[in-house]
């Protein structure tokens, strides 16, 4: 019984580790495609759609110990067709409004870390600023102001990669 419990615990731990690895795969900056996404959907970006330059040149955000530490974010960003078309962080997030919170603004040169992050949610208007046609399309299934309900943030694709 004791051995069974130990094996059971080991299995659970193994499953947890595997799940954690699947969810938080190493950051893939510099690669040109990703693996499977956290939602289990097939997400491999066609090798023709390289994103490595965009990732490298998002250095204001993805270096210096800041957002590159969020491996899921980097992974999804790297898998996105929008990243391939050079939609970088500031297109949706702007840049830090740390002054809003009374903090020192971060150094954004990407060469050394600034003062910490603030948290930066993006409203649906930021999506609609470019995707009015999609939103007005009668074939588009959802008419609520809830883009990220279907489109995974930073990857944006739904069922078929590339819909963005």
């Amino acid at each position: 019984m004791k051995l069974t419990r130990i094996l059971s615990k080991a299995s659970a731990i193994s499953l947890f580790v595997l799940a954690a690895l699947a969810t938080h795969a190493p950051a893939i900056a510099g690669k040109n495609h990703g693996g499977s996404g956290s939602d289990g959907s097939a997400t491999a970006l066609d090798p023709r759609f390289d994103t490595s330059f965009a990732i490298e040149y998002d250095h204001s955000c993805l270096s210096g110990g800041c957002h590159e530490t969020d491996s899921q974010l980097v992974e999804e960003h790297a898998e996105s067709f929008m990243t391939h078309t050079m939609v970088k962080c500031n297109a949706c997030h702007g840049t830090h409004t740390a002054d809003t919170l009374g903090e020192e603004k971060p150094n954004l040169t990407g060469y050394y870390p600034g003062i910490g992050p603030t948290g930066y949610l993006v409203g649906d208007d930021r999506c609609i600023a470019c995707h009015t046609a999609t939103f007005d399309d009668p074939k588009h299934p959802n008419k609520t102001w809830d883009c990220v309900g279907c489109h995974t943030p930073h990857r944006f694709a739904t069922e078929q990669l590339g819909r963005n």
Binding site: H67, D70, L73, C89, P117, T118, G119, Y120, P153, H154
Partner: peptide
Amino acid sequence: AIVGGGVLN
């Protein structure tokens, strides 16, 4: 993790 920000807010 999704929005990529911190938790202070």
